[in-house]
């Protein structure tokens, strides 16, 4: 017990630093993937066949293969195969590569949610805008958008919560996020070695953060329930 109390502040300190990196990856992915997903969604819905086919194939590949492999390929491929280490070295290089992999991966998932949301707006809504003399832009901003937002909030909440946990996959390229920070105490770090509990304890961080997100997203969903 005495040992545990000695270790506690050191471990928490380390985990906090790791969690900060986890949060950074989470927010960068969200901010990058949300707009990129919209671009991909429009690409896959394009009436220009070659564009929609290429987009759908990319989405299929990204959604159909493990994110962990995508991380490894994106991080190692430029340096080891092309002999052009575009990511640079150190933690900042790993963060760039991880961000790229996560943004691409999540943008593809988001794009499918957006596409479903956009296509869920009944044709009659667009026609109603049309017979009232609205332009395509007015129909999108004034009629479709709010209906799309309402339709995508529940599936997006799901993805966002999954993203929080998926950030741990960046451990595979040694990004110093919270799992990496916890694991360090098994191998030995700051005079603590063979300690397994810091790794287990990282779960508490994920739980608390996801708890906050669940409440926040639930609140948004409730706000949008003013109509059916």
């Amino acid at each position: 017990m005495e040992l545990f109390l000695q270790q506690m502040p050191i471990v928490i300190n380390s985990l906090n630093v790791g969690f900060l990196q986890t949060l950074r990856l989470f927010f960068v992915t969200l901010l990058g993937a949300a707009p990129l997903g919209l671009v991909i969604a429009f690409g896959s819905m394009s009436k220009f066949k070659p564009l929609s086919i290429v987009t759908r194939v990319i989405v299929w590949i990204v959604r159909g293969s493990p994110l962990m492999i995508q991380l490894l390929i994106i991080y190692y491929f430029p340096g080891l195969v092309l002999h052009n280490p575009i990511w640079g070295g150190g933690e900042s290089g790993r963060f760039l590569a991880a961000s790229a992999a996560f943004i691409i991966n999540y943008a593809c998932y988001f794009s499918e949610i957006y596409r479903g949301g956009i296509q869920s707006v009944p044709v009659g809504q667009i026609e109603a805008g049309k017979v009232l003399g609205m332009t395509k832009g007015q129909i999108f901003w004034r009629i479709k958008l709010m209906q799309v937002v309402k339709a995508i909030v529940p599936p997006m909440s799901n993805e966002i919560i999954t993203l929080v946990k998926d950030t741990s996959l960046a451990r595979i390229i040694a990004l110093q996020e919270i799992i990496w920070a916890g694991q360090a105490f098994m191998k030995g770090s700051q005079g603590i070695s063979g300690a397994i509990w810091p790794m287990f304890f990282t779960g508490v961080y994920y739980l608390i953060f996801n708890g906050v997100l669940t409440l926040l997203l639930g609140w948004v969903e409730k706000k949008l329930n003013y109509y059916r």
């Binding site: 009944p122 009659g124 809504q125 026609e127 109603a128 017979v131 009629i143 709010m146 209906q147």
Partner: peptide, 16 residues
């Protein structure tokens, strides 16, 4: 077409 008004079978009011 603004000279024309149109009423749909399914109303198509804006739900939001």
């Amino acid at each position: 077409c603004l000279k024309m008004g149109y009423v749909f079978q399914n109303f198509n009011l804006f739900p939001h």
